[in-house]
């Protein structure tokens, strides 16, 4: 069956991690566009083109938190998943900050891909009517 593939904007400076995410999500049928930092991501974002933004929090040239703030300025309804490998002092703090400033979900690296996929699905399903249908193989939880 055919369904619209939601495009996802991924912002992460870590090549290794970002490439892996890109490939994994492609496996699950997502179309992922990658940005190397917050600045690039902000430049690439447009509300129509991307159903979801996944961003790392610690990046050179605009950190994740900044990006979240900036994106919400562009589109207050933007759906964002934040992820982080932790910070200098209180790694969890970053993620809670991210959630507070607008991230729908936050994930601490490392995490299983399924957790991300689940998070993506949750985000997309929580969306208004325009939100895409989850794929058939996704586990049903409710």
């Amino acid at each position: 069956m055919t369904m619209t593939t939601p495009r996802i904007l991924l912002a992460d400076d870590e090549d290794l991690f970002a490439v892996m995410l890109q490939r994994s999500l492609a496996m699950f049928g997502y179309d992922v566009v990658r940005a190397r930092n917050g600045r690039e991501a902000l430049a690439a974002y447009n509300p129509a083109g991307f159903g979801l933004v996944i961003t790392d929090l610690i990046m050179p040239d605009m950190e994740g938190v900044e990006l979240i703030v900036a994106l919400r300025k562009v589109n207050p309804a933007v759906k964002i998943i934040a992820m982080s490998g932790g910070g200098r002092n209180h790694p969890q703090a970053y993620l809670s900050i991210a959630e507070r400033i607008g991230a729908v979900k936050s994930l601490a690296k490392p995490f299983p891909i399924t957790a991300l996929v689940q998070a993506i699905e949750e985000c997309l399903r929580a969306a208004p009517a325009s939100a895409p249908q989850p794929p058939a193989t996704a586990p049903v939880t409710e």
């Binding site: 870590e14 290794l16 991690f17 892996m20 995410l21 490939r23 994994s24 496996m27 610690i58 982080s84 490998g85 932790g86 910070g87 200098r88 790694p91 601490a108 690296k109 490392p110 995490f111 299983p112 891909i113 399924t114």
Partner: peptide, 17 residues
């Protein structure tokens, strides 16, 4: 820790892949 988590994340993700 940040670096490590990135690395480990990449490894786990690739293994899953």
């Amino acid at each position: 820790a940040h670096d490590f988590n990135n690395i480990i994340g990449a490894i786990i993700g690739n293994v899953d892949l």
